[in-house]
Amino acid sequence: MSSTVYIPISDQGFCALGMRVLKKRPLLVFGLIILILMCLMAVFAPYIAPHDPYEQSLENRFLPPSTEYPLGTDQFGRCVLSRAIYGSQPSLIIAVVSTILVVIIGLLVGLCAGYYRRVDGLLMRITDIMLAFPSMVVTLALVGIMGPGVPSIILALALPGWAKYARVVRSSTMSIKNRGFVESARALGAKNRYILFRHILPNVLAPVMEIATLGLGSKIIMIAGLGFLGLGIQVPTPEWGNILNQGLPLLYKAPLIALSAGALIMAFVLATNLIGSEIRDLMDPMSDSVKI
């Protein structure tokens, strides 16, 4: 899916674009490298992590960093590094799955609302209602009711998240729908569904990708926030938020527990922010809006 981002932007081939990116966009490359490394870390956690993240050995509590425990051990004698590495798994899985969900819902709602006038009013009112709540409020309420757990957190993140996408997709759709090539396709007798998926969808994907990468980062923060409040992934499963929560009382004694999780969250969000803002720049190099 990621390669499709570039195609609609211009007529340039992928390779040429790639070269341009490398030369002119070091930040994008930097962000992508971090992101890829993070994903590899999550997938290959069992091979990278030096220890079992669940293995308690109470005699070995609060060990300082050593070759055996590169970041030392926590209050239960568990390897801090291994927990931080494994901690990426729930965060990434939840963030990715819920982002895919919101993208799909957002695309469907936005395309329909933008293309079919009849359903526009209704769909946009629903979107308005969803946008009337700060997303963290809805997420917390849902997690509170459904109880903590991976599926309920995914749902709680996805349910309030799609509205933003729907808005953007709808306005893009509306502007593309009246463009010449769509008009001519319609004149040639193309079916609505064909036009939607063949002509409009590729052209709205770019802005969606941009929000989605940024959204990935903010979801990581929300997941960690839930974990920090004790409402996210429950111990002993390592997750960055609950590691941070458990590390907080031990900040003096074993600061690496909290710092390891905090640093990984920051690195991930930094990567998504860089990629997101660079994608926006690529799409519309002339605009200088909120470039970071």
Partner: peptide, 18 residues
Amino acid sequence: SRGISIIGLSIPDFFLGI
């Protein structure tokens, strides 16, 4: 300021609070 804002957008507010 660009550096500050990149970091600012990447740091969770509660981590900054700590």
